[in-house]
């Protein structure tokens, strides 16, 4: 059986620079997959390729066995792919509730307003529903993005540094939320700099360096992997 999301042999070249180099990644339903790597390793570029924001030079992306490599972003979203952004991309002049409502309506939810409110409460910002998104502190804005992504009724959830801007308690709560989402059968792909969060909640971790996947395995395996330490600290 193939994984929910399969990225096969994806490369991206900008001019002479190789941002992603023959990357293979997969995310399974019911599990949280971590994607880590030093700055400039190509994680966000890879996310952009998966969601159709950035064309890949070569390689394919499949969702539940269907090749979606050539579909535009909004079609991929309708097939069940949702994401958050490293640099926040909320609808800043809409209210927090409307941010999630837009996504819920788009997903064809029969009771979008109720769903939106429920999702906001689930990520822990239900009391902010009436605020304008632009007035939120960074941490809350990240959680609203997570709620908006969930309103798309996704099969795959891609999270780009969701914990940056959260305090320790919020980060712990986010971890619990992501585990429970995976428990409901979602495939979660997580890019995160907070290593303790990654090590705690991920089932498997892939390490990206110079656009290439240099290691994959359980958190413990990856931590001890000499190439990973080298990627972060440089060659001895």
């Amino acid at each position: 059986m193939s994984a929910t999301l399969e990225v096969t042999g994806v490369s991206v070249h900008f001019g002479g620079v190789t941002a992603v180099d023959d990357a293979h990644i997969s995310a399974d339903a019911g599990s949280v997959t971590g994607l880590i790597g030093p700055n400039g390793a190509g994680k966000t570029t890879l996310f952009n390729v998966i969601t159709g924001v950035q064309p890949a030079t070569t390689g394919t992306v499949t969702l539940e066995g269907t090749d979606i490599s050539r579909l535009p972003t909004f079609r991929r979203a309708r097939l069940g792919m949702a994401r958050t952004f490293q640099r926040l991309e909320l609808f800043w002049t809409l209210s927090v509730l409307d941010n999630v409502l837009v996504a819920a309506e788009q997903a064809g939810d029969p009771t979008p307003a109720e769903t939106a409110q429920r999702l906001l409460e689930r990520v822990g910002v239900g009391q902010l529903a009436g605020e304008q998104a632009g007035s939120l502190p960074t941490g809350s804005a990240r959680l609203v993005e997570v709620a908006r992504a969930l309103a798309c009724e996704p099969k795959v959830l891609l999270l780009d540094e969701p914990a940056s801007g959260l305090d320790e308690t919020e980060t712990r709560q986010l971890g619990v939320l992501l585990r429970s989402l995976a428990g409901e059968g979602l495939a979660v792909l997580l890019v995160e700099h907070d290593m303790s969060l990654v090590m705690e909640i991920c089932d498997t971790v892939s390490v990206l360096d110079l656009g290439r996947v240099i290691a994959s395995g359980t958190p413990a395996e990856v931590r001890a992997h000499p190439m990973v330490i080298e990627a972060y600290l440089g060659a001895a």
């Binding site: 924001v53 535009p72 909004f74 979203a77 909320l90 609808f91 996504a103 788009q106």
Partner: peptide, 14 residues
Amino acid sequence: VAMKDSPLAGATVG
């Protein structure tokens, strides 16, 4: 309004 605020986010919610 969503399209004005962020076309990118709009496309990623479908």
